[in-house]
């Protein structure tokens, strides 16, 4: 059913293999079209609902500790969902961790001065990486007032990390203790602060109103670090940089 993978460089004209017969293709097309028509019809015929939960959220917004409704829902009203989301991310990271080929005792990041990254790479890194990291911090901070937040900030910082570790001079040791700590800090802090606020309010993850804003920022900061590390790990695991770490160790 799926086409063979062909790289442009080594395939000029390969005969097409594995194409669906025309009749089946037409049948599939008709079925999908009918389903789409039904879906669009259902959407159009559905009566537009009232405001939904928007009013409830905006009426409770001043108690949440933040001014952005999205952040309020994510980290206060429905923080349990976000907690589980972070846990899912950690599981993904654990699954994606490459096999242990590097000693645990080696440091987190190794700098190889001898390798030449090239002029473009090094200058790009010099300008872009600090900017991206500052932008990530800004995103995290601004999440309380306007669009932004932990996930967006984490993605930006992960982008900076990819840029840094695409450079041949820098390599990260994914087996080291520090890397694992960075991966799991988000979930740990989230659960710990969930229990800590339970001491005060008696309910898991129910923040005391006075400190809500500070607690949310604290959790978000830890979550940002973990999200950034997880996304970076996804890239590094696929790119297979760990083999090189070992080679010239």
């Amino acid at each position: 059913m799926f086409k063979e993978i062909i790289f442009k460089e080594d395939a000029i004209n390969k005969p097409e293999k594995g194409r669906l017969p025309t009749s089946i293709a037409v049948l599939c097309g008709v079925t999908i079209l009918a389903l789409c028509t039904l879906l669009v019809g259902a959407l159009i015929s559905t009566q537009r609902h009232s405001e939904g939960l928007q009013q409830v959220v905006s009426s409770m917004l001043n108690k949440s500790g933040v001014e952005n409704p999205v952040t309020a829902v994510l980290l206060n009203f429905r923080s349990y969902d976000t907690l589980l989301e972070i846990a899912v991310l950690l599981i993904v990271a654990i699954v994606m961790l490459p096999q242990a080929t590097v000693s645990k005792s080696l440091s987190l990041i190794r700098v190889q001065q001898s390798a030449d990254p090239g002029l473009i790479m090094s200058s790009l890194l010099r300008f872009l990486a600090p900017t991206l990291i500052i932008m990530g911090g800004y995103m995290l901070w601004t999440g309380a007032y306007s669009p932004g937040g932990a996930f967006q900030a984490g993605a930006l910082i992960a982008g900076a990390g990819i840029l840094i570790f695409t450079n041949v001079q820098y390599q990260v040791n994914m087996q080291s203790f520090a890397f694992r700590a960075l991966l799991s800090i988000g979930l740990c802090i989230f659960i710990l602060s969930g229990f800590a606020v339970a001491l005060q309010t008696g309910q898991f993850l129910e923040y005391p109103q006075k400190y809500a804003s500070a607690i949310i920022l604290f959790i978000e900061t830890a979550a940002t670090v973990s999200i950034a590390t997880t996304l970076l790990l996804l890239y590094l695991a696929v790119a297979g940089t760990q083999e090189e770490f070992n080679h010239d160790a």
Partner: peptide, 18 residues
């Protein structure tokens, strides 16, 4: 805007790199 930022960073950028 929240979704837009996430889509740009993860959907387009990170997934593209991956």
């Amino acid at each position: 805007w929240d979704v837009a930022i996430a889509e740009a960073a993860i959907g387009a950028g990170l997934t593209g790199a991956l």
